[in-house]
Design a protein around this nucleic acid. Structure first.
Lengths: 226, 226
DNA sequence: GACCCTTCGATACACTGTATTGGCAAATAC
DNA sequence: GTATTTGCCAATACAGTGTATCGAAGGGTC
């Protein structure tokens, strides 16, 4: 039987009123504050003032806890919109925003099939808005948007972390990795890269995300209309 | 100084002729055979018949080893093609195929900025083929394709693992997760999902990937022509 | 031949996820 | 009302992790 439908144990009288929800919430709290590596069963248990083994009454494995955390974030995503384009834009933007609120999501998203109730609800909301689309194209379309969002989010968070790790702001980052790249460019092996980095306009993360999403949705629009 | 440009220590006379390349190769061997969790510094060192601490002469941190592993895989990706569409299709397909050869790549890809020489060379090859495209659009275009590939690869591998974990083939998987989904559908909360799962054509992974990539490239084509 | 400096390998530390076990408290049986 | 069983909790234990530290040994230079 799967986590999602395995019932929680009945409420025990006193010692520490625990619940899957409380466990997941504190785990998310730790992860939000200090990243995924701050989420160990021991630390979660300590934050709940409870022995580590206690958690195994609610969870069979740490991976299940991570699954529950991801599904809890999916609960925050309620896509809206009437036509297919609005709905897909909405899931994409909301999912990305959720990942910005919970950076650790970038480490987990796409890493396991998401079949929790909130993930299913998110999918249901999207599919419901795609009623007018050819049934056989619905899955590829949604999968493509999901894949794009997963990939974008991971890259964005990875870059954000790299910047943060090497000082503070973007200037600091350029000071840390810039010299390395400069030396690489000086080898002359990457002329096209060099030109783009030096001469092209640099869109910020939001603009890049929307541009790429626009490409994808335009292509989808052309594909489902035929 | 970054891994990529920090020189390897000079060859020591005898004890065990080690090199970053040998370390990375055996690490990749372990990961290919038994997944990323089989790559611990102790196990890599043992496979090289060497003490664990020995590796720290070539690597400052385990993350650096993982970076090197990813960059080694990027070396296998040499995109080809004359026009932008061929080149982008080529990177996408080759990257995906590389991830299928090295499933552990799905755990790492997009998780850190890829600035290793082989990753740069891959980027260079793509950008070189996009010479005809508006310079300010090149980065968003390449980023979008990369993001799509990263997301797809992660989802594919995640699904493949879930199937493998619960028995063997796809029928087995449906036996494991199917009943759970059936019970979820019986709640009546996911009618649209149910319809799609039951009635829509199910493309295989290759077809889904190509369909989505086609959408994206079509959209890009429309975007860069204007 | 003596010194130093590098580098190697062993040991050590703090930490992880989880299996096992023993005890306690509540629920049941008589 | 007592005896017994059951089920849960917490502590201990184990095998493993990444990496800091440190003593010893070896090669290169004077």
């Amino acid at each position: 039987m799967v986590v999602w439908e395995r019932p929680e144990p009945p409420d025990r009288p006193v010692p520490a009123p625990l619940s899957r929800e409380r466990i997941v919430r504190t785990a998310i709290g730790l992860a939000d504050a200090s990243g995924l590596e701050a989420v160990s069963l021991r630390k979660v248990a300590a934050a709940l003032d409870v022995g580590p083994m206690r958690l195994y009454g609610y969870i069979a494995t740490k991976d299940e806890l991570l699954d529950l955390m991801v599904d809890a974030v999916y609960a925050e995503i309620r896509p809206a919109g009437d036509d297919w384009r609005e709905a897909l834009t909405s899931v994409a933007e909301l999912t990305r925003r959720a990942a910005h609120r919970h950076e650790w999501l970038a480490d987990l998203i796409g890493g396991r099939p998401q079949l929790g109730p909130n993930a299913l609800a998110r999918g249901e909301a999207v599919l419901a808005a795609l009623g007018g689309v050819d049934l056989d194209l619905v899955m590829p379309v949604v999968s493509a948007v999901d894949a794009y969002v997963i990939g974008t989010v991971r890259r964005e968070i990875a870059e954000r972390r790299a910047e943060r790790a090497s000082g503070m702001d973007q200037r600091q980052w350029q000071e840390a990795y810039g010299p390395y790249l400069v030396r690489m460019f000086e080898t002359g092996r990457f002329p096209a890269l060099e030109t783009v980095i030096r001469d092209a306009a640099h869109l910020d993360a939001d603009q890049t995300f929307r541009t790429g999403l626009g490409f994808l949705l335009d292509g989808i629009g052309a594909g489902i209309r035929s």
